[in-house]
Amino acid sequence: MSSVPVPTRRQVLALYKQFIKNSNQFNNYNFRQYFLRKSRSTFKESADLKDTVQVTNMFNEAKKELGILKRQAVISQMYTFDKTVVEPTLKLNHTQ
């Protein structure tokens, strides 16, 4: 197991940044907010992990999930969704 390098703090934060950036790509408000919340809670939960094996496992797991997130974000942009009421509809407000 020792052959696998343990991810550094910077690597983990960089991965988190990728999660946030890709979550922001979602067109649909509900999906976008869900993935932002989900990324945050998952990273926060494992913030206290000390065991190097566990940290490495979580890191690799998260990398796989980032792949899924990226694909889904792209797919979500191929479809249009109606805006939910909580989203600001700036254009409408300006014209009326």
Partner: peptide, 14 residues
């Protein structure tokens, strides 16, 4: 915390 800072930096980038 460090995660919040990352989120803030992303907001700045945008």
């Amino acid at each position: 915390d460090s995660l919040d800072t990352v989120e803030l930096i992303v907001a700045m980038e945008e």
